[in-house]
């Protein structure tokens, strides 16, 4: 019957539209919910003080987020220093040098790396990276440490962001027109010179977008860094110091936050901080990537 078919169609359309609205409203709920919970903290302190104060003593009513911000930034920086060069070089190799057979073998393996849950990265960090730092790497620099350090967090994180970096970089490098490469190669440039001076230059916005996405992944990673970073709320001064990233702060303290005044508000403020930064970073890089893709298709 035409009528029943049309009714079915209308029902399907309306209900999926409602589902869409509900799912998208999650963004707004997160934003409003966290802001709402942070308001008590804003009433007592101004934001600038919260972000630059380095004393974290909730019992005494002092909420300084600087150690955690520095913890997050330093872990992420170490991770980027390790994974950026490795991922850029591997992506160029995969797109420009590697045979199809190799590509078809390596890319699925990278996907497996993406599927491994954070807690397993954490276990690997505790079993291998932490002891390695304690007994080999730190003594090399004349430092003695338990191994639970910024460096350990950075190494574990760097491996965790390999997949997102490589998969996006490979996609970006694929969009570079073959004519450009052919022009450069036919002028006598070597493949490496072409990669340096033509491909990387052309792919720069996409590569930056990939790195920004990786940064936001690193900012939000909780359990793996929590397991290997040492969690001491002091501003780290070297990579062999323990650190305390923001997500670890939330995960470690949510249980007791109800009993101390403003504590819950402070933790929700740190979640808000993460949300705002990661939202912004994701927005920028997704817009860049969408534009690149659009150009490629058009």
């Amino acid at each position: 019957m035409l009528r029943t078919r049309l009714i079915k169609n209308a029902i399907a359309k309306q209900s999926s539209f409602v589902l869409l609205l509900i799912s998208l409203s999650v963004v707004i709920i997160i934003g409003i919910g966290l802001t709402f919970k942070s308001i008590p903290l804003f009433e007592s302190f101004n934001i600038w003080d919260l972000l630059t104060n380095h004393v974290w003593a909730p019992m005494k009513g002092s909420f300084g987020f600087l150690p955690f911000i520095m913890g997050t930034l330093s872990v992420t920086l170490v991770a980027l220093l390790i994974s950026c060069p490795l991922c850029i070089l591997s992506s160029i190799y995969l797109t420009e040098y590697a045979s199809n057979a190799l590509k078809n073998m390596v890319l699925p393996l990278i996907n497996v790396l993406a599927a491994i849950p954070p807690v397993l990265y954490g276990v690997w960090g505790v079993l291998f990276i932490v002891p390695a730092i304690q007994s080999y790497i730190a003594p090399l620099f004349g430092v003695s440490t338990s191994g639970y350090t910024i460096l350990a967090g950075g190494i574990v994180l760097s491996v965790m962001i390999f997949p997102i970096m490589i998969s996006i970089m490979v996609e970006v490098l694929k969009t570079i027109p073959a004519e450009l490469k052919a022009a450069s190669l036919s002028l006598g440039a070597t493949k490496w010179e072409t990669a340096q001076k033509v491909i990387l230059r052309k792919a720069k916005p996409g590569i930056i977008a990939a790195i920004v996405l990786a940064i936001s992944r690193a900012f939000g990673e909780t359990i793996a860094v929590l397991m290997v970073c040492g969690n001491v709320s002091k501003i780290p001064t070297s990579i062999f110091d323990a650190g305390y990233p923001i997500p670890a702060l939330i995960a470690n303290n949510f249980g007791e936050m109800m009993s101390i005044p403003l504590y819950d508000s402070a933790l929700m403020f740190s979640a808000l901080l993460l949300f705002v930064i990661i939202f912004g970073f994701n927005l920028i890089s997704r817009i860049i990537l969408n534009r690149l893709e659009g150009k490629h298709n058009g």
Binding site: S23, V26, V27, I30, L34, L213, S216, R217, F219, G220, E221, T222, P247, I250, A251, F254, L267, M268, A271, L274, F275, I278, F279, F281, N282, L283, R286
Partner: peptide, 12 residues
């Protein structure tokens, strides 16, 4: 963007 929001934020 939602895909990139970390689970700790969802949890909080």
């Amino acid at each position: 963007i939602l895909y990139g929001i970390p689970s700790i934020v969802y949890g909080a």
